[in-house]
Amino acid sequence: MTEAITVETWIGMGVAIIAFWGIASWALVRTMRQEDRKLKLIERVGSIDTYSPRGLADLRAWIEENPDDPYIGDAKEAYNECVETLKEIDETFYHWSEEEIEELETVD
């Protein structure tokens, strides 16, 4: 079989396998491992941080830019919950440095 397959066909098959099965497998393994880590952290520490540093910075920026938004209550609650959790726990889910956590403040 293989002798009849051209370079273009090999490229097509290679791209298909790597781009689809490769990335889908990566996503599956990553999300399952994250899930496992989250569960272990919750068991050990009681709660986990809910935002990554970039995600939380975006949320804070949105809160500051939209003080009268009808969803501002939800946003503040989500922000403060994450900040308070980060200050309480010893081990974080996302990659937070101690300096970054120390600089965080809840919003009113």
């Binding site: 990553r30 999300t31 989250k38 809910t50 995600g55 975006d58 949320l59 939800d74």
Partner: peptide, 19 residues
């Protein structure tokens, strides 16, 4: 979309989704 992104998409997210 920005509301949804900051309030839900990036909350507990496995990857960061930018603006």
């Amino acid at each position: 979309p920005e509301r949804l992104r900051v309030l839900s998409v990036n909350r507990n997210a496995g990857i960061y989704v930018g603006p």
